[in-house]
Amino acid sequence: VDKLTKHLLNSGVRAAALHGGKSQPQRTRTLAQFKTGQVTVLVATNVAARGIHVDNLDLVVNVDPPSDHKDYLHRGGRTARAGESGSVVTLVLPSQRR
């Protein structure tokens, strides 16, 4: 997560990392920055993504596809809240194919 976030930042993308290695105040601040648009890309681990609620989230990109279908649905469920629509994109590297 940190490596991908750093790559995005170096490419000019306003990104922030969210994972269990961050303190609760850091996670709260990062999520608030994402909700206000100060951060435009939130890079999160599967564990950190659980329970996140952001209104008007229209895109989820899976970089490391979840192996469990419930996790995949949960991640995608971050979009399309309250009758809204959203998109889910999953990137699969050749080394991740089964």
Rank of each mutant, 00 (worst) to 15 (best):
V1C: 15
K3T: 15
K3V: 15
L4C: 13
T5C: 14
H7L: 15
H7D: 14
H7A: 15
L8T: 11
L8Q: 12
L8V: 12
S11W: 10
G12Q: 10
G12S: 11
G12C: 09
G12W: 11
V13P: 08
A16R: 10
A17H: 08
A17T: 13
L18Y: 00
H19I: 09
H19C: 12
H19N: 13
H19L: 05
G21Y: 07
S23E: 10
S23R: 10
Q24L: 05
P25D: 10
Q26L: 02
R27K: 13
R27Q: 08
R27V: 07
R27L: 09
R27C: 05
T28A: 10
T28F: 02
L31S: 07
L31A: 06
L31W: 04
A32Q: 12
F34K: 01
K35Y: 03
K35F: 02
G37N: 03
G37C: 06
Q38T: 14
Q38V: 10
V39F: 06
T40E: 14
T40A: 12
V41G: 04
V43Q: 08
T45L: 03
T45V: 05
N46P: 04
V47M: 06
V47H: 03
A48W: 02
A48G: 12
A49L: 04
R50V: 00
I52G: 01
I52R: 04
H53Q: 13
V54N: 05
V54H: 02
V54Y: 04
D58C: 13
D58L: 05
D58Y: 04
D58W: 07
V60D: 01
V60A: 09
V61C: 04
V61F: 06
N62Y: 01
P65N: 07
P65M: 14
P66K: 06
P66D: 14
S67R: 15
S67A: 15
S67F: 13
S67D: 14
D68P: 02
H69C: 08
H69Y: 13
H69W: 10
K70V: 13
K70N: 13
D71L: 06
D71I: 07
D71G: 08
Y72L: 08
Y72I: 01
Y72G: 01
R75P: 00
G76F: 03
R78E: 00
R78G: 02
T79H: 00
T79W: 00
R81N: 04
G83N: 09
E84I: 00
E84H: 11
S85R: 09
S87M: 09
V88K: 02
V88I: 09
V89S: 03
T90P: 01
V92Q: 03
L93W: 06
L93H: 05
P94E: 12
P94T: 06
P94F: 04
S95V: 10
R97T: 11
